[in-house]
């Protein structure tokens, strides 16, 4: 979308005000309203869908496979597909990189170990059906929900197969399945937030118009313990990109720290809700 010079200047100035005025009257730490549903794909271990009011939609499915631990380098593989973009484009590759690297560095792969030889390998497949703003935040929220609702079949064979080689066998009762992330564990999957910088203000979850006039952007990771890496910057628009000050970086850090906890709480309440598995 192209803004006229007048629109651009009006939007930029109102976002740079103290306090800022966002076009949809949100506060700087407020997300756009979204609708989330979970566990609706019958053939995958966990799934989630998030839709935004502007029509943006993302579906994530988590599948698993039993592999020999020695044969694989990573137990999590993320694949991102964005409609309208080639899979080998820079845009899609960068989304993929961010999701893959945050899960690799902050997901305890020990929970995927089955026996001394075998592990589960998790495949996280993400589809962005429609997006208006940079979809990383949306992808990350959906991935979080999908991982939270993932359950894996219960292992019934012996755990120790060091002496006797044995293929793992599983209970065929799906009610016996164990959640990937145990309900009592302190660990939660990591999240990624997109932050836009306009003037001296920082905004979480920028809309498309806000991105257009933003001077810079940041991608910030969050986990229950606080802000984690990545803490990267990204140009959200190709016009009037400017450098940031240390102040912006610190402000963005505080912003994510402030709203990260609330987002986690909201997502966890969605993940607990077992009723919503019919979406069509």
């Amino acid at each position: 979308m192209k803004l006229s010079p007048a629109e651009r200047s009006y939007l930029h100035d109102s976002l740079a005000l103290q306090p800022p005025i966002r076009p949809d009257a949100r506060s700087p730490a407020q997300f756009r309203p979204l609708e989330a549903s979970i566990s609706f794909l019958p053939s995958s271990n966990g799934s989630a869908r998030i839709r935004l009011s502007d029509g943006s939609e993302c579906i994530v499915s988590v599948k698993s496979k039993v592999v020999l631990t020695a044969n694989v380098s990573s137990l999590i593989l993320v694949d991102v597909d964005v409609s309208g973009y080639r899979d080998d484009s820079n845009f899609v590759s960068n989304l993929n990189y961010h999701l893959q690297s945050i899960l690799n560095s902050h997901f305890p792969t020990a929970v995927l170990r089955l026996t001394s030889r075998y592990s589960f390998k998790i495949f996280v497949d993400c589809v962005v059906l429609l997006h208006t703003s940079y979809p990383l935040g949306l992808l990350s929220l959906t991935t979080y929900l999908a991982l939270k609702t993932t359950s894996l079949p219960k292992l019934v064979s012996e755990v120790n197969d060091e002496e006797v080689e044995e293929q793992p066998t599983f209970s065929d009762d799906w009610d016996q399945s164990t959640p990937l992330i145990p309900t009592n564990s302190t660990f939660q999957p990591p999240l990624l937030f997109v932050v836009a910088v306009v003037g001296d203000n920082v905004f979480i979850d920028p809309s498309r118009e806000e991105q257009e006039v933003s001077e810079n952007g940041m991608i910030i990771g969050y986990e229950t313990q606080g802000v984690i890496s990545p803490f990267n910057n990204i140009s959200l628009s190709d016009r009037e990109v400017k450098g940031m000050k240390l102040l912006h970086v610190i402000k963005a850090h505080l912003l994510v720290k402030k709203c990260g906890e609330e987002v986690l709480k909201a997502l966890n309440s969605v993940a607990k809700d077992e009723g919503g598995n019919a979406i069509f």
Binding site: M218, G226, V227, F231, N232, N233, G243, M244, K245, H248
Partner: peptide
Amino acid sequence: HNNEIVGIWTESEGALDETNLSSLI
């Protein structure tokens, strides 16, 4: 140009607090 930050890319093992972040910068 006022020491403006034009690119930042961090990797950390655990939590990344403000003091670490500003000292890195």
